[in-house]
Amino acid sequence: MRLTGKVIIVTGSTTGIGKAIAKKVVSEGAKVIIHGLEEDLGQQVVSELGADNAKLHIEDISNEGAAQRLVDIAVKTWGKLDSIVNNAAIVAASTLFDTDKAFLNRILEVNTISPFLLTQAAISQLIQNKGAVLNIGSINAYSGEHNLLAYSISKGALMTMTRNLGDSLFRENGVRVNQINPGWVLTENEIARKKEHGLSDTWYENLPKNYAPAGRIILPEEIAAATIYWLADESGPISGQVVDLEQFPMIGRNIPKDENSVPLK
């Protein structure tokens, strides 16, 4: 197993991509702190993984002191902390015309500032254990959909932070910082969002190849599988990297000539 003996915090891991990552790291031998807002869902994840492998902490990641509490729980429970996965995020629609200061601040607090604060709180443990930070971004970091302005800003800032810390922390302290940018992923929340937008209960079963060349979108488990390399020692000295996980390139994509329908994303 590739993560045997490691202790990892995965924020936003009661649902979706975070839950899939938590389950995957445990399958690779790690212990994990499950974090999120949904007590019942978190308890289900811990039950699946076993109390010896997982510890639950329910709290808004942007609360004052939340980052330090997560680190303290990991160290108190298993004696150390090897890695953090900054996955918790708010995905909310907004444009220039309906984004006020309070909304923008809220998105930045959760999606960008909280990953910074958790990295800061964990740094002594990460230095001691030559650990790793993995940030979960989004392909929206490059410009974003027209109605995901605040979210896109937050993920663009996260990507810059990854590259900055990936250089400075590794150069000075041996702590690797990398990021993956998932594309369109079939999470529980994504299914619900599209239904709220008026799509059918089975909207994801017959997708145009313009938006999903494989005929389907990416599964959380497929994103989770890609995280193990970055958390394991096998990634060696690689740091400051951002990897896109989507079905088509963000730069240089050959858009089909018949792509004239309204995007589902």
Rank of each mutant, 00 (worst) to 15 (best):
L134Q: 13
I123K: 13
S124W: 07
A92V: 13
G131K: 00
S138Y: 09
N105V: 11
F116A: 12
L118D: 06
N135R: 07
L81V: 09
S94A: 11
S143T: 05
V133S: 05
G79S: 07
I123W: 05
I84N: 01
A141M: 07
S114L: 01
G79T: 05
I113Q: 03
N105A: 14
N105I: 11
S114I: 03
S94E: 08
I107W: 05
L81Q: 02
A102C: 03
K80N: 11
D82G: 02
D82W: 00
V75G: 03
N105L: 14
G144E: 07
K101Y: 15
L104A: 13
L81R: 01
S143I: 06
I73V: 15
K130W: 01
Y142K: 15
S143N: 07
D72E: 13
T99K: 09
H146D: 12
T119F: 02
N111I: 12
W78P: 06
A89S: 10
T112M: 06
E109W: 11
K130P: 00
L96G: 08
T112S: 07
Q120M: 02
T77G: 11
E145I: 00
N86P: 03
F116G: 01
V110Y: 04
V75K: 04
V75Y: 01
L126M: 13
I107E: 01
H146C: 11
Q128D: 09
A92F: 11
A88N: 04
L126N: 08
N111Y: 08
K130A: 11
A141R: 06
Q120K: 09
Q120P: 00
K76V: 15
L118I: 12
L118V: 10
R106M: 07
L126G: 03
Q125A: 06
T112G: 00
T77S: 13
A74W: 09
I107F: 09
Q125I: 02
T77K: 14
L118K: 02
K130G: 05
N135M: 04
V133R: 00
N111Q: 13
I90E: 10
N135H: 10
Y142N: 13
S83G: 10
F103A: 00
L96E: 08
T95N: 10
S138I: 09
L96I: 14
V91F: 15
I136T: 01
E109T: 10
K80H: 11
F97W: 12
S94M: 08
D82V: 01
I136E: 00
V91M: 10
A122R: 05
L96M: 14
L117N: 02
N135Y: 03
H146R: 13
D100L: 12
A122Y: 05
F103Y: 06
I113H: 01
G131Q: 01
A121P: 04
I123M: 15
E145V: 02
R106T: 07
I123G: 00
I90N: 09
Q128N: 12
E109C: 09
H146P: 14
Y142A: 13
G137S: 14
I107G: 01
F116N: 03
I127A: 04
S94K: 08
L134E: 07
A132T: 14
G144V: 06
V85G: 07
Q128P: 01
T119A: 10
N140R: 06
S114M: 02
R106G: 04
N140Q: 15
G144A: 10
A102L: 12
L126Q: 05
A89G: 05
